[in-house]
């Protein structure tokens, strides 16, 4: 079950404020990095809800995000809708897609679930890749960002846009934390630890899996809108399975089932990518080595491992003071 410790709040605020400061003091390039981190972190939180809490390791979160981005593009470019309802439509499409995948794969588990989500993701990718109406592999352009001039904010400005994505990241975190702390979050934990037992307590696990992936899809949908608004151009690459794989790497790197870990993972992943690629093109190899180290160290991820150490030290401290009390 999710709990918001002081350490988590502290790390969350530290990262969010750090990102805003980095964007505010940095160059255009720094702001691009902040946007990239924020979008990846939202996706990683979305996957953490499904995989870390619900035990559903999905390889279609890239596709879910892409569905949102494409729906946003279709509604605003093809049908000429204003940006806000288009964004709502995009997020809803992602939630519906997630729910559908969860519903259909509701009785599969483990490797079969992973393969099924991979298949759904690739189906969505192929569908869009082959669609002439959607521009095929050329993608779609002509997108707009929100018009927030009534708030005195110009999202066309790189700093404002970077701050806006960080605010969205904060809101997504709050939404995920709120849902995971509800009764639904408990059911999700139960689903993860023993699905049979949950069924024997009368819980319809298929519906809950569908709901979980639907909510996770909704969060991924937010990332899709931001991705579309970021580049103002979208291509089927967004839906390709390697994007989903990258999200999974970020979650595992940061710490599965910690919600803050995925944000830490996203920061690390994007930073490593940009720093290392200044020296070599093989930045994937460096990320791979870090990932292997993180997995071999116990699979808790970087943030998860730090939490584990802290808990260990607290326990040791308690025992010591208990011994002192005895003496």
């Amino acid at each position: 079950m999710f709990f918001q410790s002081h350490a988590r709040t502290a790390v969350l605020l530290f990262v969010l404020i750090g990102l805003v400061l980095y964007a505010a003091t940095g160059s255009y390039f720094a702001r691009e990095i902040v946007v990239e981190i924020a979008i990846l972190a939202i996706l990683a939180i979305s996957l953490d809800v499904a995989a870390g809490y619900g035990g559903m390791v999905s390889l279609c979160h890239g596709a879910i995000m892409g569905m949102s981005a494409y729906t946003y593009a279709i509604l605003s470019v093809k049908f000429g809708l204003p940006t806000l309802p288009s964004a709502v439509g995009g997020i809803a499409a992602a939630a519906v897609f997630g729910t559908a995948v969860g519903w259909i794969t509701g009785r599969t588990a483990g490797i079969f679930f992973i393969m099924a989500t991979l298949a759904f993701g690739q189906m969505a990718y192929t569908l869009i890749f082959k669609s002439r109406w959607l521009g095929g592999d050329d993608g779609m352009g002509g997108l707009d960002r929100f018009d927030l001039s009534w708030l005195g904010i110009n999202l066309g400005d790189s700093l404002s846009f970077a701050v806006y994505t960080v605010v969205c990241l904060g809101l997504v975190y709050l939404a995920a934390a709120w849902v995971l702390r509800s009764g639904f979050g408990r059911t999700l934990s139960g689903l993860h630890s023993n699905e049979d037992r949950l069924q024997a307590l009368g819980v319809n696990t298929v519906i809950h899996r569908a709901r979980a992936l639907g909510f996770s899809g909704l969060l991924a949908g937010v990332a899709g809108i931001l991705a579309a608004q970021h580049t103002l151009y979208i291509s089927p690459e967004l839906l390709f399975w390697t994007v989903s794989g990258e999200i999974l790497i970020v979650v595992i790197l940061g710490g599965l089932g910690t919600l803050v870990g995925p944000i830490v993972g996203a920061v690390l992943f994007v930073m490593l990518k940009h720093e290392v690629s200044e020296y070599t093109n093989h930045w994937h190899m460096v990320v791979g080595l870090v990932l292997i180290a993180a997995v071999l160290a116990g699979g808790r991820g970087i943030f998860g491992q730090i939490e584990y150490w802290a808990a260990d030290r607290r326990r040791a401290g308690k025992e010591q003071s208990a011994e002192a009390g005895d003496a």
Partner: peptide
């Protein structure tokens, strides 16, 4: 028994 270990 199958207590949900991650829950209180």
């Amino acid at each position: 028994r199958d207590i949900f270990g991650s829950l209180s």
